[in-house]
Design a protein around this nucleic acid. Structure first.
Lengths: 163, 163
DNA sequence: CCTTGACCTTCCCATTATTGGAAGCCCCAC
DNA sequence: GTGGGGCTTCCAATAATGGGAAGGTCAAGG
């Protein structure tokens, strides 16, 4: 089958299938006379594996590992468990941070009258000259570029959500 | 003061200060004879405001709004509250999704013996041919490109973690 | 047989926030 | 007066994905 079909059957866009091939997550597909990529049911099987892993928030890098373990009949389940647990830890840490942030904000918002007067503790807090003189350009970064890798808005966030 | 000093005092890297200027989050700084950017204490004040907002997970886009509100003495606190609460909702949703993911994974990992035998329900789950034939190339996407915007690994994930 | 349209190909660009590097000025302390 | 470090700009990369252009292929219909 061609890439469109494989895409429909696996739930991964054709674009991403080509991308995954380009970065080596999946081997290069064989081509038809006309240069079209050809996929077998087995390939689709692999693609679905990838889709599920992706839906669980695994990064491509982790998927490389998982795929190798999947294909290796002699793999030790301990390896899989290790990867999974490491991922669980990451997810939990990120969830915790998110909850802390939302808690702080919520608290601030609760003390914000929400009327048309300019008093607002949220702004006040942000403007406050408090604490240490700030660690020098700590360069603290956020998540990884794509952060947690959640299957977000599904139907909700189809739009680019910005300009 | 020059950008290095402003960076140290605000906790935002010089690189990011220039970046914020380039995208219009902050106005272009005046320049010294030698072409160096010059910052006042007030500018540093603004930069710290930005740093705090960033630490609370606000995106640049949201910071633009917050800064405008901050600078506008006649602002309505209702606007600030609205933005904050919307952000809280987002954060909570993301945290919830993360917890769901980690829960699923944890459950799977608990049933994985973790020995040197190849049996592993994690792999089995991923490989399973179950369910619907997968919604056609749904193109479901994850978070925004930078997802939640947490102050992540601090010391943990400093490394590029790849290649 | 040839056209049409759906599908495929590659390549490039954009997104987000941030860091890294290179090449080349500038400035202050010694 | 000079050396090293700070400053400047521009370019690239990151992760994952979408969007589009320009052009080739395939299958069905006229």
């Amino acid at each position: 089958m061609n890439i469109g079909r494989a895409s429909a059957e696996s739930g991964i866009s054709a674009k991403m299938i080509r991308y995954y091939e380009s970065i080596g997550l999946i081997p290069a597909a064989s081509r038809s006379e006309g240069g079209y990529r050809e996929y077998s049911d087995n390939d689709v099987h692999t693609l679905r594996f990838i889709r599920r892993a992706r839906d669980l928030g695994f990064t491509v890098e982790q998927m490389v590992e998982l795929l190798a373990l999947w294909r290796d009949r002699k793999r030790a389940s301990a390896d899989v468990k290790r990867i999974a647990l490491k991922h669980v830890e990451e997810l939990e840490r990120k969830a915790r941070e998110l909850r802390e942030m939302s808690g702080t904000l919520k608290h601030l918002a609760e003390h914000c009258k929400g009327n048309d007067r300019p008093d607002c503790p949220i702004i006040a807090e942000l403007a406050e000259e408090a604490g240490q003189p700030a660690r020098p350009s700590s360069g603290r970064r956020r998540f990884g570029p794509m952060a947690a890798g959640l299957t977000t808005g599904r139907s909700t966030s189809g739009r680019p959500a910005r300009s």
